[in-house]
Simulated scan of single mutants.
Amino acid sequence: MATTETITKTVPSLELNAKVHYGDWRDDFFRQGYYVFKKAVTPEKAQNYYYKKALDWLQSFNNGFDINDRSTWKKEHLPQNFKNMYIWYCAAHEKFMWDARTEPNVLKPFEQLWGTKELLASFDAFNITLPHRVDDNFSPWPHTDQAPERKGLACVQGLLNLTPAGPEDGGLLLMVGSSALFEEYFSTFKKRDRQAVDAKHYDFYGFKPEDIKWFEAHGCHQIKVNADPGDLILWDSRTIHHVAKIESDTIRSVLYTCFTPAALASPEDLAYKAELFQRFEATTHWPHCNIWGQGKAQINGEVDPLERDEPLEKPVVTDQILKLAGVKPY
Rank of each mutant, 00 (worst) to 15 (best):
Q146C: 11
V176S: 14
D145I: 04
F182Q: 01
M175F: 12
V176T: 14
K208G: 01
E111I: 07
D169L: 05
S187C: 07
S178Q: 02
F182A: 10
P131I: 08
H132E: 10
A125P: 05
P209D: 08
D136W: 09
G158M: 06
G115L: 00
T144P: 00
R150Y: 13
M175K: 13
S122A: 15
L113S: 03
R192W: 09
Q157C: 06
E168C: 08
T116P: 01
T144F: 02
V197L: 14
F207D: 05
D124N: 12
A196H: 12
T129K: 13
V197M: 13
G177K: 04
E168N: 14
S178W: 06
K151N: 11
D136V: 02
T144W: 06
F186N: 04
V134P: 01
T116S: 05
D169K: 06
F207Q: 02
L153Y: 07
E118W: 09
F138I: 04
A125T: 14
A196L: 12
P131E: 11
F189R: 06
G170F: 02
C155Y: 15
F126I: 07
M175V: 10
K190N: 11
P148W: 10
E118Q: 14
T144C: 09
S187H: 15
N161A: 09
V134D: 15
S139Q: 15
E149M: 10
V176D: 13
R150L: 10
G152K: 04
W114A: 05
A199C: 07
L162K: 04
F186K: 06
G177H: 08
L172S: 09
D136S: 12
G166D: 10
L119N: 04
A121K: 01
K117F: 01
V134I: 15
F182C: 06
Q195A: 15
V197G: 10
W141I: 05
